[in-house]
C-alpha cells in the first residue's frame, strides 16, 4: 500500500514536517485513522455538548420492570446499562478517561520502555545490566497490591491510575526493545558507522531508532487496548476513576458477565476501543513508512 507512494527521489526538501503531513494525507488509511482519532478527541473534549444525556442519570424508564437493561432503541441509541443509564452518553464521556489512559499513560510507558531498552541494549556493560535487572524487578512487581495500597492512601483519581500504568507497563517494551537493539548494535553497518567516528547519539538516532520504529508502533497501538482494560482492573481496586464516572474499560469490565443477555454493553465499548487502537495503528504504520530510512529511495 505504501511503497508506490514513496517517491524514489525527492528533488527538493521543503520543511520536513510539511512533507510528512502532505505525504500522510495522501494515504487513505492514515486519513481514516486521523478522522477516527479526531472524532474521539472532539467527543471527549466537547462531551457535555455532544452527549444526548447526562452520563450519570439513572432513567426511571431505562430499565425493564424486572430490572433488565434496554437494548438499543429510539430513545437510547446504544441501549441502557444495568442502572438504566444511556450507554452512548457514557461512551462519549468515557472517551476522556480512555484517551488519557490509552494515549497518554500508555505513550509514556512506551517512551520509558523504549528509552531503557535502547540504552541498555546499545551500551550494555554495567548500565545495561542495572537497567535490565531493574526491568526484571519491575516485571515481578505486584501492581495490584500497589493499587490497593495507593487506594487506601490517596483520593482516587484518573492521574494516579495513569501513573501506575506508566510505572508498570514500560517493562515489556523495554525487554523487547533491548533484545532488538542488542542485535542491531552488532550489525555490520553500525560497526562501519562507529569506525567512521560517528557519535553514539548519532548512531542511536539515525541508525538504531529507525529500525525500532515498527516495533514501537506495534507496542504503542496494541497497548492502547490493554491499558484501557487494565485501567478498569486497577480502578476496581479503588485507585482510578470511581463510579459513576465512565471509562470504556470499566463499562466492559462491569458488564462482561452480561455479554449474553445484554451484548450491547460489551460489544459496543469493545468496538470503540478496537477502532481507536486501529486508528492509531493506521497512523503509526503510515508514519513509519514515511520516516523509515531503509525505505527512502527504494520502492521494494
Amino acid at each position: 500500500m505504501s511503497e508506490l507512494i514513496a517517491p524514489s527521489a525527492a528533488p527538493r526538501r521543503p520543511t520536513r514536517a510539511g512533507t510528512v503531513i502532505r505525504r500522510l494525507l495522501r494515504r487513505p488509511l492514515a486519513v481514516t485513522g486521523l478522522v477516527i482519532i479526531a472524532i474521539v478527541v472532539i467527543a471527549a473534549v466537547f462531551a457535555p455538548w455532544v452527549a444526548p444525556y447526562d452520563p450519570g442519570e439513572q432513567f426511571f424508564d431505562g430499565l425493564t420492570l424486572e430490572g433488565a437493561p434496554l437494548p438499543p432503541n429510539g430513545a437510547f441509541l446504544f441501549g441502557t446499562d444495568l442502572l438504566g443509564r444511556d450507554l452512548l452518553s457514557r461512551l462519549i464521556f468515557g472517551a476522556q478517561t480512555s484517551l488519557v489512559i490509552g494515549v497518554v499513560a500508555n505513550g509514556i510507558a512506551v517512551f520509558i520502555g523504549a528509552l531503557v531498552g535502547i540504552v541498555a541494549g546499545y551500551f550494555r556493560g554495567w548500565i545495561g545490566t542495572i537497567l535490565m535487572r531493574f526491568t526484571d524487578l519491575m516485571m515481578s512487581f505486584p501492581a495490584l497490591l500497589l493499587a490497593i495500597v495507593l487506594a487506601a492512601i490517596f483520593k482516587p483519581s484518573l492521574w494516579i491510575v495513569a501513573m501506575v500504568i506508566a510505572m508498570v507497563n514500560w517493562v515489556q517494551v523495554a525487554r523487547v526493545i533491548y533484545t532488538e537493539t542488542r542485535s542491531l548494535a552488532e550489525r555490520d553497518f553500525i560497526e562501519a558507522e562507529r569506525s567512521l567516528g560517528a557519535s553514539s547519539a548519532r548512531i542511536l538516532w539515525s541508525h538504531i531508532l529507525p529500525h525500532l520504529v515498527s516495533t514501537i508502533v506495534v507496542w504503542a497501538t496494541l497497548g492502547i487496548s490493554t491499558t484501557v482494560l487494565l485501567e478498569a482492573t486497577l480502578s476496581f481496586l479503588g485507585i482510578g476513576v470511581q463510579p459513576p464516572t465512565a471509562s470504556w474499560g470499566n463499562i466492559i469490565f462491569e458488564n462482561q458477565t452480561y455479554f449474553a443477555s445484554a451484548p450491547w454493553l460489551v460489544f459496543i465499548p469493545g468496538a470503540a476501543i478496537i477502532l481507536l487502537a486501529l486508528a492509531f495503528n493506521f497512523l503509526g504504520d503510515a508514519l513509519r513508512d514515511i520516516l523509515d530510512p531503509t525505505q527512502q529511495g527504494r520502492s521494494a
Binding site: I148, A151, A152, P156, F236, L237, G238, Q242, P243, P244
Partner: peptide, 14 residues
C-alpha cells in the same frame, strides 16, 4: 456522596 469502591479488606478497615 463520592463513592469509594474498594477491596473488602479496605472497606472493613475504614
Amino acid at each position: 456522596a463520592e463513592i469509594k469502591s474498594l477491596a473488602q479488606a479496605n472497606v472493613i478497615e475504614a
